[in-house]
Design a protein around this nucleic acid. Structure first.
Lengths: 108, 108
DNA sequence: TGATTTGTTCGTAATTTTACGAATAAATTT
DNA sequence: AAATTTATTCGTAAAATTACGAACAAATCA
């Protein structure tokens, strides 16, 4: 019998994972997670990519819910979205906690 | 000054995250993490996708190092790759632990 | 031996991702 | 008002992802 759908958790996990599935986006989060101030320019300075590309990656992280932006003309301030960050943290925690590897022979 | 490269950790994080960036692959891991036996057929049964596609997703998970396969003619047994699983777990744990959100105002 | 079971690989198509420079928009500075 | 600063959006191109059915390979069963 074929499963009809994925669970909501699986879909959300995949969504967050996908957002983190690029070194530039991981680097952006690494940076944002440790900074008080986080203007676009500062973020872009950390990355070996063009401005347009950095902006695109920030959009994807925002779309995924991991970060949020606030316009402070003429700059834009970005930061971690706390609520979704916590959700992602919990999802990944649960995900990586579920393996019963230690209790069995596994392959090989 | 532009950063020249991403760190090894960032690259590895992104690699694991990317592998988990699809609901089918999350579902596969969810299943494998809880099963003693894990033949291809059983895995495929859980998924709303074609055999060829399931095989492809398993390849990607294997390539990323999260799972491993063992041929048991005429079947193929898959399971979590413990060593890399632990590494990924540690990487994600560290990643999600680094946010200083709680100690600051953040955006808004 | 021939048929069946099991899973991968091939060929292909549609979509998404990643990246860049140029153009643009919005506010500030001169 | 004109020039500058800041960041996004546009247009585009190359590559990767996702999906499928058909063909194939490898071992077992009848």
């Amino acid at each position: 019998m074929k499963k009809q759908e994925y669970t909501e958790k699986q879909i959300r996990m995949a969504r967050y994972a996908k957002a983190l599935g690029n070194p530039a986006r991981v680097a952006i989060i690494d940076f944002l997670a440790r900074q008080e101030t986080c203007f676009f320019g500062e973020i872009h300075e950390q990355l070996p990519i063009a401005k347009a590309t950095a902006s695109q990656h920030l959009s994807e992280l925002k779309e995924a819910g991991l970060i949020q932006g606030e316009i402070m003309p003429p700059k834009v301030k970005y930061c971690i979205n706390k609520e979704n960050w916590m959700e992602a943290k919990a999802l990944f925690g649960e995900f990586f906690g579920q393996c019963v590897c230690k209790n069995r022979q596994c392959c090989g």
